[in-house]
Structures are given as C-alpha cells and as structure tokens.
Design a protein around this nucleic acid. Sequence first.
DNA 1: ACTTGTCATTTGCAAATGCAATTATTGTTC
DNA 2: GAACAATAATTGCATTTGCAAATGACAAGT
Lengths: 160, 160
Amino acid sequence: MYRLTNSLPYMLNRVGVRMGDLFSRRIAGYGVTLPMYRVMAALWEKGDQRLGDLAGMTTIEISTLSRLIGEMKRRGLVTRTRLKDNARTVAINLTPKGRTLVEELIPIAVHFEEVAVRNFPSKNVSDLKTVLAEIYESLNSIEPEIEEVNKARKAAKSKA
Amino acid sequence: MYRLTNSLPYMLNRVGVRMGDLFSRRIAGYGVTLPMYRVMAALWEKGDQRLGDLAGMTTIEISTLSRLIGEMKRRGLVTRTRLKDNARTVAINLTPKGRTLVEELIPIAVHFEEVAVRNFPSKNVSDLKTVLAEIYESLNSIEPEIEEVNKARKAAKSKA
DNA sequence: ACTTGTCATTTGCAAATGCAATTATTGTTC
DNA sequence: GAACAATAATTGCATTTGCAAATGACAAGT
C-alpha cells in the first residue's frame, strides 16, 4: 500500500530540505546564504565556469543564478567577465576574498557532514552516495519517457 | 579533498530537486502542483490533521501551507474546520473530490518511482530508504549541537 | 553584407515564499 | 476570575523565485 512518507521523492526532499536548513543556519553568521555557499564551493571545485554550467552544477535555475551572481559580485565574492573571443558567454570566478571565505566555510561543511552521519557506518554512507549519484544519472534517461507521457496526454486532450 | 559535488547535502538536494521537478511536470496536466500533491497524499495517509502537523509531515513552512490550504479549499480539494472543543486549532481533511483526485495521482507516483529506480536492485533502494529515514531522525538530535555553535559565535561576537 | 537563426545571459513581471507581527483561543497563576 | 503566558493559525510585507520575453552576440545561408 502506498504511503507518501515511504516514497523516494518525498524522503529525499525531506532529508535534503532539513539538512540544507540546518547547514544554512550554521553558516548564516558569515553573511552567506546556502545558494551562495553552493556557488562558491562549485567555483572552488571548478573555476572559470559559464552561467549555464554553474546552473547545472548547482541545480539553481538560471535566471535566479544570474541575479545571485550579480549580488555576489556586488559583495566582491565573484567576478563575471565577458569573454573576448566569445562575448555572449561569461566566465565566472572567485575573487581572492571569495576564495578566502569559501576556504573558511568548507571545513565547517565537512564537520557538519561528519556530525550528521556519525551514527552510521561509513560504508553505508558511501553506498548511499553511490546510489544517489547513479539515480541522478539515470533520471536523465527517463526524462524523455516522462515527457512522452505528457505529450500523449496533451495530444489526446487537443483531439478531444 | 573536499568536493561540493561529493557532499551529502548537495547530492541529496540535487536528486531531490530533480525528481521533484520531473514528477511535478508529470502531474501538471491534472492542474496540481507538487506541494498540493504532497498535501493530498499526506491527508490520504492520515486525515484530520492540524496545520502544524501537516507542515511537519510535508516539510512545508507553516505560513506557506496555510495559504496553500486556502487555495486548495477554494478549489474544493480539502476542508478546513475549526474544532469545537479547541477552536484555536483546525482540522484539515480531503473532500471526496480531493480523495478521488489523489487516488488518481497515486498510481502515477508509484509508476514514476518504479521507472526512476528500475535499474537498481530493490535491495539497494530499500536500504537507501532506510538510511534516509535514519539520517532524518538523527538530524533532530544534532540540531541542538548546531544551535550551540551559533550561540557560541554570537556570544563571542557581542563580547568582542 | 544582410537577413535569419541560434545561443547565452539578463530582465520584466506575476506568483510564491518566509519571517515577524497579529489575531484568536486556551492555560496558568496569584 | 483578571492578568499574563502559551499555543495555533493567519496575515502583512519585503524578498526570492521562475517563466517568458527581451537583449546582446555570434553563426549560417543567400
């Protein structure tokens, strides 16, 4: 029998929201929001990114991200420069100030995660991560299937 | 070495957002948003809930939920009635219309989940769920610890 | 070279969100 | 039992969000 509270999207969302919320509060004192942290950590991991790539990497919608980068630029955390050779794209990077800040926050993130999963065998946690990554990948392949159903519905509807 | 893309909150958020997004589009044709579905499925699982309980069950912020319930009531999906014996609380329930709709959507949710994880041994999936539930529980116990750190920071700050 | 098309990003605008303050009811204490 | 505290839900308001339209820049076809 179906139960929402036992369905995967629900469980993922619930833990994700809760963890995000806790970590968010943990770093609030540094004047940084969670999306900002994600952007900085993403740039720290891989700099010189275009807006679209960063959006993909952080799962932040692109127009939201555009504005967020604007704000972070005003705060001196990142740079946003049009490329000379291809001026319709933009390269986003950490400033030294942004780098210093994110390198202060990363140990906090590490510690946070340690605390969050300290009651679990590390094998379980690494298995969990593996499965999460695999499911994420596999979602890309089911997307067309989902869209198909929608199209079928729409077609049937417009016919009716 | 730390990588955002290998950190648990990030991975959870990413898969959760993606799954929610796909399912959201899947049910959009029924005129229902994902939060609405969650509310209906939660009420289907356990009716006669108070606002605060529903908020806890769905991880929807309470004021957002209050307005959402208002909208759903206007659409005839739920009822919201003040209790006679304790008139500061409210009991929320599905209407027959809401029940019919959610019972139409649940098989879609079941199928969606089947598709999403069909490449994985069911053992892995059930393990995953178990760990997710346990981590969620354990987060409650670390919350005070997190808050402690914040308080400590604030205290140190106001002293300085 | 000029129109047409496509890609990457930004912006306008309406809707959704969340914190804080408010309202309404119940519980407690003196 | 009057004043005060606590609980539950709602609402005001400023911020954030996301879709769709607009902008700006390169690419291709004629």
